[in-house]
Every structure is written in structure tokens, then in C-alpha cells.
Design a protein around this nucleic acid. Structure first.
Lengths: 192, 192
DNA sequence: TACCTAAGGTACTGTGTGTACCTTATTTGT
DNA sequence: ACAAATAAGGTACACACAGTACCTTAGGTA
């Protein structure tokens, strides 16, 4: 009954929107090829012509979901910037996004290149954001230039993500975030 | 043709050994109820009478695999202890154990209590081990007593595990381990 | 000896992945 | 304007796996 048959980019977007919808509503387990196809008003063939398997579709949908999440806060002091970024990431990782992330991580065992793509887009996990925050702190004289290393800069978000991935919780309390900042991150960057 | 039918603990051990074998050879995806049952020379009913679902069986098998892995090294200095522990954990987490861990983590989305059990046994992830190492360093005067907090003590292993979980790699290079120790962990505990 | 418990065996439902094959609509080149 | 190429729709399928039902059979126990 469709007046005109959708093609190319139009159909691709419809599929992606359907997959992202399932992801948001039912988590990664809900992203089945049958469900996505039905929701997009198409069939599995159209999906398999674009993504080689369920995992690839899941990553693409996840990227659509968490897009536009990399703003760099500027509160005027390092502690405020770090807290704001962690809290923002905490919202992004909260249920169901945490489940989604965990589900995706596990499904990528055989596709390292897909996992790398996922890692790049992982919510606020990019080192560049953290280096930017630290660079401004260096400019204000809050920390020494030797702290400007990716491994050091991303410690806070790694610890936060660790809470999600290994504890399976749906949301990290603000106390934990403050603890990460005051007990670990700030002492570390000031000592480096 | 079995002379005597196995029962109770004997059968349970046979099932667990079969599951651990599949885990070691094929990772978590290989731990299917059918395969484990066949390998153990029994049937799915016997498994379901003991574990409520595949995830529970997977955790039990994982615990069998990584058992006896918590020795506390004593090299006489903090840096040596930390490096030894991380290198040991790196071996434990190396393929296929890393895949196994990731697979288990993802499957636990609905069973928080199982995930908690897994977390307890996670290779060298227990805070107690790290606190012991730090306590000895405090005794030697290497670090201040204020560093004796779980969040601080476990930072090194969390960073190492992060490499596995988010990057999907099969083994972390020794350079990364040294970087974690010298650039992050030692500065952190000495500053605390 | 009879009973009870637990193991073995088999079959089944339901769901999901991925593929095959054919039909039909739409675009593009001539 | 028409034909050929391209891509979508539709259906059916093979295969694997989780979990359940139901019955049969072995082996301790009273």
C-alpha cells in the first residue's frame, strides 16, 4: 500500500530509526532482525544488504542514540568541569543505555573493528574531551603540563564506566562520582 | 552402558567440568546446554535441576576456571608487587578468558545477584588483595595511610580490565601495564 | 520387597540468525 | 519511450539454542 517504494538512504534511515527505537525500549536483546524489519515496515533482506549481522546494526543504532553528547563544560575550575562531565556521562550511561552498552560489548567478541568503532563513540570516553579540560586547567595553573596524557586524562570516565560494566547497576550515585573526583582524579592529575 | 548411574555431587562435578571445558575452548558462546549435556554424558534436565539457566552455569564454570588465582606477591617494594599482580591478572584475562569475562558480563543484565557473585570472584579484582599490598607499603613507609581506600587501591586493576572490556583485545602489552603503574597508580597512591 | 528420589531419554514449543529464491517496483541508459 | 539493470518486497527455509513436559529407569532406603 506504500505509494512509492522506499529506496537507498531513505530506507536505510527508516531501518536505523527502528533499530534505535528497539534499543531504547528493549535494550540490545530487543534488536532482533525480525523486530527491526517489522518496525521499519520492510524485511530482513533489506537489512542484511546493509549490515552484515546483528552486531553491526546494533552499533549503528547505538551511535544514533548517543550522538550529540560531546559538549565540553566550562565552569572555570577543573573540579567543576570534571564533575559536570561525569554527571553528564552518568545520565548517558544510565539505564537502559548501560544495558545496551554491556550487551554490545559482549557481542563484539569476534569483530574487533566494530568494537573499535564503538569505542570511539562511547559516551564521553574520547580522550580528546578530557585533554581539552585538562589543557584549560593547565592554562589556569591548576595542574602541571605533565598530566596531559590520555591514560591519565581518562581515568575518571574509566572508573565510572567500570561501575556500570562490572556491577551491572543502572545508575551510579552522585556520592560515587564525587569520590572518584576527589579521592582519585584530582589527586592524580595534581600529582602528575 | 554406564555401569553405575552417576548421582549427586559426582554428576554435578562432571557437568561443571564439561562446562568449564567448553568455556576454555569456545568461550561463553560455546557453553550451550546441549553441548554441556552431551560433553558431560548426561542431558539437559540434570543441568536445569542444578542451575536455573545458562548464565548461572556459566558463572559456576568460570569460577572453576579462575580458581586459585589470588596469591599476594611480595617483592619487597610496592612497584614490584603491583607489576606482578597486574601481569598475573593479564595472563588470567588473556584470551580466551577475556572473551569469557565479557560474554558473562553481558549476559547478566537481568540477574544482578549473579553478577555480584561474578564480581567477587573476578580475577584479582577483589579490593582485599590490593589493600593488603598497600598495607605492606604503608608499613615500609612507601605510601601514606590515607591511600588505604578500596576506590584508590583497585585503580590499577580497573584500568587493566578496562583495556579488555572496552577494546576487545586478547592481551595487553607489558608497556601498557608499566604505563598504568608508573603514570597513574604510583603517583596516585603516593599523593593520597 | 516396596517406595522414593533422581537420572536418562525424547520430544516439543518458541525464538532467533542468516540464507535462498523468486517477484515486483523504480531508476538509468540508450 | 523502452529495455536493462538495480534494489526492494515476500516467503520459505535450515539451523541452533533456551527452556519445558513427560515418561521411563536405576539405585538407594525403609
Amino acid at each position: 500500500m506504500a505509494q512509492t517504494r522506499r529506496r537507498g538512504a531513505e530506507l536505510e534511515e527508516a531501518i536505523l530509526r527502528a533499530a534505535a527505537g528497539e534499543l531504547a525500549e528493549s535494550g540490545y536483546p530487543g534488536v532482533t532482525m525480525d523486530r527491526v524489519a517489522q518496525r521499519a515496515g520492510t524485511n530482513k533482506n533489506a537489512i542484511y544488504r546493509r549490515w552484515p549481522n546483528r552486531a553491526a546494526l546494533g552499533i549503528a543504532a547505538y551511535q544514533l542514540l548517543v550522538k550529540d553528547n560531546t559538549r565540553v563544560p566550562d565552569t572555570g575550575e577543573l573540579r567543576g568541569d570534571v564533575l559536570a562531565t561525569l554527571r553528564h556521562a552518568n545520565e548517558q550511561l544510565s539505564s537502559p543505555n548501560g544495558d545496551i552498552l554491556r550487551g554490545l560489548l559482549a557481542s563484539m567478541q569476534e569483530e574487533p573493528e566494530l568494537l573499535a568503532a564503538l569505542h570511539e563513540r562511547m559516551a564521553d570516553g574520547g580522550a580528546e574531551l578530557w585533554l581539552t579540560i585538562l589543557r584549560r586547567a593547565v592554562g589556569r595553573g591548576e595542574v602541571a603540563e605533565t598530566a596531559l596524557r590520555p591514560r591519565i586524562a581518562t581515568v575518571a570516565i574509566v572508573l565510572l564506566r567500570n561501575e556500570y560494566v562490572t556491577r551491572g547497576i543502572t545508575s551510579v550515585s552522585d556520592e560515587v562520582i564525587v569520590e572518584i573526583v576527589d579521592d582519585v582524579y584530582l589527586p592524580l592529575v595534581r600529582a602528575s
